[in-house]
Design a protein around this nucleic acid. Sequence first.
DNA 1: CGCCTTTGACCGGCGC
DNA 2: GCGCCGGTCAAAGGCG
Length: 321
Amino acid sequence: MGLEKGEEVTEVMEGAASSLFSDVLWPGFPINSAILDLPDEAGGGGSESPDFMELLGLQDLSQSLFNSTPPIQTPQAAPPAESSETVNFPATPNSSSMSSSSTDAANDADRVAQATAPEAVGDEGAELGRGKTIRGSNSKGEKKKGQKRQREPRFAFMTKSEVDHLEDGYRWRKYGQKAVKNSPFPRSYYRCTSAVCSVKKRVERSCKDPTIVVTTYEGQHTHPSPVVPRGTHRYAPPPPSAWSSPYLPIFSSCLPSTQTLEFRQHISNTPPFDYATSFAASVGDARRHREPAAAAAAGAVRDHGLLQDLIPAKVMKTDQE
DNA sequence: CGCCTTTGACCGGCGC
DNA sequence: GCGCCGGTCAAAGGCG
């Protein structure tokens, strides 16, 4: 199902409520990023989703983003070799900026809402599903008819990037890849490699704009984000408060009370807890096959003090109001 | 050797 | 009931 036109869109946050997030604003989050805070249950159903980007005025939003937000200049962050973009964001060395107007994203959000299997409730269920539970005898038996599984909070980032899998400080294991209908690009499925963590993420490219990567996180990391890379680099881990639940209430409080879609323009609204820190850490995980620039960039974005430099004064002002 | 990706198959939900 | 589609599993292979 997804968001139908005419369906309520409670929040298209363009500066409001930002103070809520100001203290947790991930300094490394791409300025030109769009965050799709996906409803827990958008209704499921039809795969043909409406263009909710359009619905939300994202098109205009993204345009204004690119037009009004000057490229963030960060002395530390050299443009990654992989990126041909000149507008780079320090926190995402392999991603340059963000925003999109693609219906692909809409589809994604829509699909996300309907996609996940209904058995697992919370981390436990999801993790069980990792094994045989889903296929096992109890998965069906435990599910009550007509009762859908509660989903993990999901959060979609649309990032303009040349690489599909954006480093976010966590270690992920790819467990699947599927061709997506109406899209020439496959969707990749990743799971956090931590045994105690069941966070998943999906990565796919927008069919409308192949330079845009839609990353959808599901679940909540139950461990510190900085999985120390096996490589040479490590970034400064976020404070414990950043990777445990404290931010969750904030996140939760922002979830629409009704089944609505919420689009957050991160400039004024932060991604929730570890999604933010996760991304903040992203560049840090330069692990293999990532350019050294990532490491440099990682160091560049740790300091919240840079926030002022990263966010246009205008935005900051808005943020404080 | 450990970890990761790839990839075909399988499963379940949903629409027709 | 059937078919489509998304999500997941797991074996095999690759890489450092």
